[in-house]
Measured scan of single mutants.
Amino acid sequence: MEVRTIKVFTTVDNINLHTQVVDMSMTYGQQFGPTYLDGADVTKIKPHNSHEGKTFYVLPNDDTLRVEAFEYYHTTDPSFLGRYMSALNHTKKWKYPQVNGLTSIKWADNNCYLATALLTLQQIELKFNPPALQDAYYRARAGEAANFCALILAYCNKTVGELGDVRETMSYLFQHANLDSCKRVLNVVCKTCGQQQTTLKGVEAVMYMGTLSYEQFKKGVQIPCTCGKQATKYLVQQESPFVMMSAPPAQYELKHGTFTCASEYTGNYQCGHYKHITSKETLYCIDGALLTKSSEYKGPITDVFYKENSYTTTIK
């Protein structure tokens, strides 16, 4: 009895394709271990004539594949690729409408935090270190965002349907971005203890939790000093293409032309909904596939993004 075979390709990165001759009487799992086709788990399936010449994702289970996976995804987590594939199996079914010149995501599976993050990423200057993220990001900007969303979920250790947080998501993504040249110098002034300067680099240099107003941050924000008295913390120097200011959701007025974009969060910790506000020729609110415009805006804002380049204080 002759062994019926077909020729397929296996890959971990969709760049390096490895030619395989597979036995049609055995499952993919018996031949390769966990195997995925377009995100779908085909591990328990036997090869079919229609699979001839198709590319299958496999887990990096030998040295060659491990090197290829690390170079593309910059992670050695053995569960990463499987999590990416199972997320992709959902995100490829989502709709990605162009809204006001940006790629958004039609609401499904509690994905409003991903839509808000995706919209924000198209408006701030950011370059990702893992080629996987950078490639998928370019495709997302062009309207094909399924891979990018699935990668975000995998890097953030999230599953489809789980509630997510924009600030946490951005923080994970910033860790995989090139923020080497970003720098922030802060000064804390206390009447009792004097003053202390701190220099922050990388992710810490672009994120701040405690106030939404970048102007206020430049002037000074009140913080408790270690001595128990009130101290003032203010920005001395900022070198970065953008800054992200966050605070627990509270009524906040966004003035046209003073910011790049913002995240609105309605609801409580267990259950809520994100919308995205962007400042173009007027203010726009993007909620999944829905767009509304207004000249002014007041609502429960939790993150505001500002364009920056270089700032030095005039406070002496």
Results as ranks from 00 to 15, higher is better:
residue 4 R to W: 12
residue 10 T to H: 07
residue 15 I to R: 11
residue 15 I to E: 08
residue 17 L to W: 07
residue 18 H to Q: 07
residue 18 H to N: 09
residue 20 Q to D: 07
residue 25 S to Q: 15
residue 27 T to V: 14
residue 30 Q to N: 08
residue 33 G to S: 05
residue 35 T to I: 12
residue 42 V to T: 09
residue 44 K to S: 12
residue 45 I to S: 13
residue 48 H to F: 12
residue 53 G to F: 11
residue 58 V to N: 07
residue 60 P to C: 07
residue 68 E to Q: 09
residue 68 E to T: 07
residue 70 F to K: 09
residue 75 T to F: 03
residue 82 G to H: 15
residue 83 R to Y: 06
residue 84 Y to W: 04
residue 85 M to A: 05
residue 86 S to Q: 15
residue 89 N to M: 08
residue 90 H to F: 12
residue 91 T to P: 04
residue 93 K to V: 10
residue 95 K to P: 05
residue 95 K to C: 13
residue 96 Y to N: 06
residue 97 P to Y: 07
residue 98 Q to N: 11
residue 100 N to L: 07
residue 101 G to D: 07
residue 104 S to T: 11
residue 110 N to F: 04
residue 110 N to W: 03
residue 118 L to W: 04
residue 119 L to H: 04
residue 120 T to A: 15
residue 123 Q to G: 05
residue 124 I to P: 02
residue 126 L to C: 10
residue 131 P to C: 04
residue 134 Q to E: 10
residue 140 A to D: 03
residue 145 A to N: 03
residue 147 N to S: 11
residue 157 N to L: 03
residue 158 K to S: 04
residue 160 V to G: 04
residue 161 G to D: 03
residue 166 V to P: 03
residue 168 E to V: 08
residue 169 T to I: 10
residue 169 T to L: 08
residue 172 Y to E: 07
residue 176 H to C: 07
residue 180 D to P: 00
residue 182 C to F: 05
residue 184 R to T: 05
residue 188 V to C: 09
residue 189 V to K: 11
residue 190 C to I: 02
residue 192 T to M: 11
residue 198 T to L: 13
residue 200 L to F: 12
residue 204 E to P: 12
residue 206 V to A: 00
residue 207 M to Y: 08
residue 213 S to Y: 01
residue 218 K to F: 03
residue 219 K to L: 11
residue 220 G to N: 01
residue 225 C to P: 01
residue 228 G to K: 04
residue 230 Q to P: 12
residue 236 V to K: 06
residue 240 S to I: 01
residue 244 M to G: 00
residue 245 M to G: 00
residue 246 S to Y: 06
residue 250 A to W: 05
residue 255 K to D: 09
residue 255 K to F: 08
residue 261 C to N: 03
residue 262 A to P: 00
residue 263 S to P: 01
residue 263 S to C: 12
residue 265 Y to D: 02
residue 267 G to H: 11
residue 269 Y to G: 15
residue 270 Q to D: 15
residue 272 G to F: 00
residue 273 H to I: 03
residue 274 Y to H: 01
residue 275 K to C: 10
residue 279 S to L: 00
residue 298 K to M: 12
residue 299 G to C: 04
residue 303 D to H: 01
residue 303 D to M: 04
residue 311 Y to T: 08
residue 312 T to C: 10
residue 312 T to S: 11
residue 313 T to R: 14
